[in-house]
């Protein structure tokens, strides 16, 4: 008997998102009732739901570890915590009140430095440099590295923006990299 190739049939457009939530048990009240009512009558949506039940559990297999793994993990982390506890060093205690201000302040400082450095360094370096990565002045590269660091502090905060930037970067190739 010839095997049938899998080609996902679309569920009803208005229901697909609800069915995903329904699959995960995140559908409640009238939305759930509506989904269940619809599923009784719609084979495409029933098929869609059944498919989710076949491949999604394949992807999530929690790992089981022996107790010794967790003992080592916990022991190692406690050592790291003890070694890195800023409250155990003289400066950590004295300047801990500054910590909440440190990142925004440094971030702002970097932006000011970048704003000041860009036109200045561009005039100095442009006549000598080659285009592309090698031509980027050391100061700019350092500032860029630092901005990179600040950008990484909270990626979730600006995911949409970062994704748009990454797409643009991919479209433009590597030429735009500092």
């Amino acid at each position: 008997m010839a095997q049938q190739k899998h080609s996902p049939q679309p569920a009803c457009r208005d229901f697909e998102e609800t069915l995903v939530l329904y699959y995960y048990g995140d559908c409640e009240g009238p939305e759930r009732d509506r989904a269940e009512e619809h599923l009784k009558a719609c084979s495409s949506c029933s098929h869609f739901l059944a498919e989710l039940g076949t491949f999604l559990p394949l992807m999530a297999k929690p790992k089981e570890f022996p107790q010794s793994f967790w003992d080592n993990y916990y022991g190692e982390l406690r050592r790291k915590l003890a070694a890195g506890d800023p409250r155990e060093s003289w400066w950590g205690g004295r300047f801990s009140w500054l910590r909440p201000l440190a990142v925004p302040a440094l971030g702002a400082a970097m932006i000011v430095i970048l704003a000041l450095a860009l036109p200045f360094t561009a005039t100095i370096w442009r006549p000598q440099g080659q285009p592309g990565e090698e031509a980027a002045p050391q100061e700019i590269r350092t500032v860029a590295k630092n901005l990179d660091f600040f950008e990484s502090m909270d990626l979730l905060e600006s995911l949409d923006l970062l994704e748009a930037l990454e797409e643009a970067k991919a479209r433009n190739g590597h030429g735009q990299k500092l």
Binding site: P8, E16, E17, V20, L21, Y24
Partner: peptide, 29 residues
């Protein structure tokens, strides 16, 4: 809460992810 966004946005992300994963299985016997 983790992503600091709205529940509606999470629903949309989740739906799109599942749809893309399902689509990736197209053509399998």
């Amino acid at each position: 809460n983790v992503m600091q966004t709205t529940e509606g946005t999470v629903r949309v992300h989740l739906h799109r992810a599942v749809a893309a994963l399902r689509q990736s299985l197209t053509g399998l016997a």
